[in-house]
């Protein structure tokens, strides 16, 4: 019925203005609060634009609190990011070291250097091995004497107790592949022990796995800390805006209307914090880069500092605002529910 009425009005000839005008006057008077039609999507976008502007305005009104919050959130977010980066870089380093690792084949104690050379000759044709080097019994003794400072004790022995060693450099670098190769070499006749010179790297890698876990834990704790910081700032903001919230509700604002600017506030705090965290991490990398270069000059393989990848930066850029949004929803939602009527 209503629809038909509207159609009729639309179809009314433009020359005939009498009753139509009167009805419009009355409409205007009676339903004036209803805004011009812009369509639901336009209205929705408009409400969000206003809320964003409102959120920004509230932040500008107390710039100190805003900047402090953003700074603290940034520092909190930077900590796990930096730790994650450190673990990542050390992990790459450990991989590099591992890749360059040799396998030492200790022959049985009764073997002589000739047996070692024969074995070496055979291994040179092995496609899984790039280089082969023989350490004779005398060389082994010399090395031990020089390295361990046990020269006098060794002299007491009289006879050289050390077997010859064949050191091979594997072609591949895949850890499981290396492990199979080591096992195969250990099974060769005359080989007493096949040892990969990577035990300390493995230990380092185990430590790094632990550090990785700690970084995750730190990340979770940071999320809680950020929620507390942002939540507290928003709670105080909500308190100072209580009169406006009460009056707005009296005038017909829904809870969602009241919350919206604060939700944008939470997003902006999180986003600002994420940007600050990016800045801290990138500045920190620039700061330690020269020291890393100096360190790299001592390593033949070289050392390269890897910055955060795009993935990590995006994760940070999403986690901050999302955390801010969720916090704002919880804190302000609670505050609005508790709000008393005027």
């Amino acid at each position: 019925m209503k629809l038909r009425l509207r159609e009729r009005r639309k179809g009314a000839s433009p020359g005939y203005q009498g009753p139509k005008r009167r009805r419009e006057d009355r409409e205007e008077h009676r339903h004036g609060a209803r805004p011009e039609r812009h369509g639901p999507i336009a209205d929705h976008l408009y409400a969000h634009r206003l809320a964003l502007a409102g959120g920004l305005r509230r932040m500008r009104r107390s710039p100190w609190a805003t900047w402090l919050t953003i700074l603290v959130v940034g520092i909190a977010l930077a900590l796990p990011t930096a730790l994650d980066l450190a673990v990542d870089n050390l992990g790459r380093l450990a991989d590099d070291w591992r890749r360059g690792a040799d396998i030492s084949l200790f022959l049985t104690p009764d073997s002589d250097d000739a047996a070692a050379r024969t074995l070496a000759q055979r291994l040179r044709d092995d496609p899984e091995i790039t280089t082969v080097r023989v350490i004779t019994r005398d060389q082994a003794l010399e090395e031990l004497r020089a390295r361990a400072g046990v020269g006098e004790a060794l002299d007491l022995l009289g006879e050289n107790p050390l077997p010859p060693v064949v050191v091979v450099t594997p072609a591949g670098s895949d850890p499981t592949h290396l492990a199979t190769l080591r096992q195969r070499l250990a099974g060769l006749p005359g080989v007493d022990l096949a040892q990969m010179d990577t035990q300390w790297v493995e230990r380092l890698q185990a430590l790094l796995r632990l550090a990785d876990r700690l970084a995750t834990l730190l990340g979770l704790l940071t999320a809680v800390a950020v929620a507390v910081i942002v939540g507290n700032t928003l709670r105080l903001e909500g308190q100072s805006y209580a009169p406006e919230l009460r009056v707005s509700r009296l005038l017909g604002a829904s809870d969602a209307d009241l919350r919206r600017p604060f939700l944008y506030g939470g997003i902006l705090y999180g986003l600002g914090g994420a940007l600050v965290a990016w800045g801290i991490v990138l500045l920190g990398l620039a700061w330690i880069a020269p020291a890393v270069e100096r360190l790299a000059s001592h390593y033949p393989q070289g050392l390269e500092l890897h910055g955060p990848d795009l993935h990590a930066l995006l994760l940070l850029g999403l986690a901050g605002p999302l955390l801010g949004l969720v916090t704002a929803r919880v804190v302000i939602g609670h505050q609005i529910r508790e709000l008393e009527n005027p």
């Binding site: 609060a33 209803r34 805004p35 408009y46 409400a47 206003l50 707005s248 005038l251 017909g252």
Partner: peptide, 10 residues
């Protein structure tokens, strides 16, 4: 203006 702003009037 507040009640009009609340209903989304421009």
């Amino acid at each position: 203006a507040l009640p009009l702003a609340i209903v989304g009037m421009r």
